[in-house]
Amino acid sequence: MSPRVSNTFDMAIGVIPIALLIALWQGIAMSGAAPPSLLPPPGVVFGRFLQQIVSPAYLEHAYVTLYRLFVGFGIAVLAGVTFGILMTGSKAVASIVRPIVRVLAPVPKIALYPAFTLTLGYDDASKIALVIADAMFPILLATYQGALAVEPKLAWSARAAGVSPLKTLFTVILPAAMPSVLTGCRIGLIISCIVVFLAEMITSTDGLGHLLVRAARNFQTVDMFVPLITISILGLLLNAAFNALRRYLLRGFPEEK
């Protein structure tokens, strides 16, 4: 099978479990085990979703969530990759950053969120800070591990050509570690999706997470499920975009199996 045909095939296969899940949902709703006011049938929810997805007010909330997600994730990538690479290049940087990472990485970042809201306010800044705090460590660690594993002869080839150690770090070590860096970024992206939603659920006046909590508190169960579907579809789209970017960036690397 050609890759394209097998991709379409895989996607078709992938739809089946999702369809089964929705069928199960429909089955439970129809069985009367849960009253429709608490568990609305999927048809009603998707109908509402289609209605909302074209409503400017709803899109405004989705946009706010996406904005926090991208800014937070972007800064996490920048900081994680930079520190991860610099740790590889300099023993001094490594000896400063490593203990900090060791202490902070296992801390449940969500516990920092009250502190963030108190210091940074209830707006974007506190949510972005939480996304950065949570997404940065897996990216940093993946970059550091990947960079350490780069074949030294690649760097030697650059150094022998007269390229400075710092330039070698960013023009050879970083691109050579790219497969590992991107694995870290994918984990960071998933974490970002979860965390931005969570932060909005805890304290927010806007965003998809806030819509969900507000609907739940008012027993608007249909409206409660709509943000959930929105964020999972956003996750799917982001993942697809990320994979396309990954394929492009790794086009020269041997195929992974």
Binding site: K153, A160, G162
Partner: peptide, 21 residues
């Protein structure tokens, strides 16, 4: 004291940059 462009290495493993043409 370190590498320099007066001495050019060629390695058994080629050590080419896979992300470059």
């Amino acid at each position: 004291t370190g590498p320099g462009p007066d001495r050019g290495p060629v390695f058994q493993e080629f050590a080419l940059f896979p992300w470059k043409t």
